[in-house]
Design a protein around this nucleic acid. Structure first.
Lengths: 240, 240
DNA sequence: TAAATAGTGTCTCTTAGACAATATCGT
DNA sequence: ACGATATTGTCTAAGAGACACTATTTA
């Protein structure tokens, strides 16, 4: 962008980092037998906030885009490719905790619950936590960032086809509904949910059914990407 | 935020800048006698893109917040305090035009149409342009940024009380409707607009009427800030 | 008076939600 | 058969939009 108004640029450009709020649907049942939203956190090994949990992140180097930097830190922590990766907000207040100035471009991501747990549990400094009950006091302003990411996710799930990214290739409407319920922390009427989500036109009936469950078998659906976007896309998001 | 995963930070942190898309409602009538959306641009005096128009902006110094940096550049160009200043998006691709890498945190702002024109017109390198018809080829990726800002504004005017910030202390519903029409580039039904906007509960009838116009005098309304926010606020936005 | 704008009333259509009713599976 | 879940049907309430109608000013 270059600087249109100022003739000299001082050597005081603040350091720039990327952090990512990663959400995953943990299929293990919670108290009421329903899946829940979890996120990975990293324990800080240095001051400030040594020992506190923090969002995964890292510095931005001059030769990588912000989005790539976010994707890289995501791969480092979860070893998964994000099913959704969008920019959340850039935090650049002068006092975001313990003195030092840092500008953080924060992304949020959704990943599928496939295999990451094992290797993560080997590292005691990386762990998954319930999104609504982060452990103790998070480092810096990360609790506020997490709250904002959750609020954005909750808002977005109401009008965009987002929750599907938490699930596998095919899924029943009950599973998709469980994902919505985990995000919103409410119960949704199965009948109305079905109509609402089908009306969006982003689901395709595979014809197969999911048998083995409790009651009547449910049809399996697949996400189809609707090329005619109705919502504002991330301007630097993935091309397609 | 500090870096949780990476042990060393390279000295390659990209330079950081702020730019702002400023919208103003120009009361001078357009072809059909209606106000229009305008924005200020700055002519580049250096390479690259010398001579092209660009969004006003500047570097971020280590001791100012991003929001403050945006407000400062706004003051430099329009000499007005923004009635609304929100973060738009952070552009940080590796090739945003003509080589050099720059990360730009972009804000968008609304200002009232009061007095800025005079002093701006004295500077041939700062000028106002219709938002929908920016001059020639803008520098860098600024045309895309402008498009995105317009899209966001158009989306937001549908659910948030934003257009009022373009007007003065008191205004008629016809003036507010004209602002909406300028933003959306459509005509709105006066009757339905009245009901919709009054239902939001953010307007207060002053009791006074606006006389001197063509037909029946219209009541003057005032914006009241509804403390119970229903939309997601800018997380680093103004406290209140 | 006519023209113009402000403001009210009404009608239709769509959508969200509550909730009843039916369908089809495991046990 | 019974319990559980899937799926469909139906009813109501709220909101958006089209449009007729009334009210009050200037010319």
């Amino acid at each position: 962008m270059e600087f249109s108004n100022v003739s000299e640029r001082r050597a005081t450009t603040p350091p720039l980092g990327v952090s990512t709020v990663v959400f995953m649907l943990r299929p293990e049942e919670d108290a009421e037998g329903r899946p829940g939203l979890w996120l990975p956190l990293v324990r800080r090994t240095r001051e400030p906030y040594r020992g506190h949990w923090a969002l995964p992140g890292g510095p931005v180097r001059g030769d990588t885009s912000l989005r790539t930097a976010a994707a890289d830190t995501l791969k480092d922590t979860t070893a998964l490719a994000p099913r959704l990766l969008e920019q959340l907000y850039t935090f650049g207040g002068t006092d975001r905790g313990e003195g030092q100035r840092l500008v953080s471009v924060v992304y949020w991501a959704l990943v599928r619950a496939e295999d990451p747990h094992a290797e993560l549990l080997q590292d005691p400094d990386v762990a998954w936590f319930p999104a609504a009950a982060a452990p103790g006091e998070l480092a810096f302003d990360h609790q506020r960032i997490l709250d904002y990411a959750l609020a954005r996710l909750r808002a977005k799930v109401g009008y965009a086809d987002v929750a599907q990214r938490l699930l596998g290739e095919t899924f029943t409407l009950a599973q998709l509904r469980a994902a919505h319920e985990a995000i919103l922390d409410t119960r949704l009427d199965p009948a109305n949910f079905r109509r609402t989500v089908l009306a969006r036109g982003s689901l395709e009936d595979t014809g197969d059914v999911h048998t083995g469950g409790m009651g009547r078998p449910a049809h399996l659906y697949r996400a189809i990407d609707t090329r005619q976007q109705t919502v504002l896309p991330d301007p630097e998001g993935e091309r397609s």
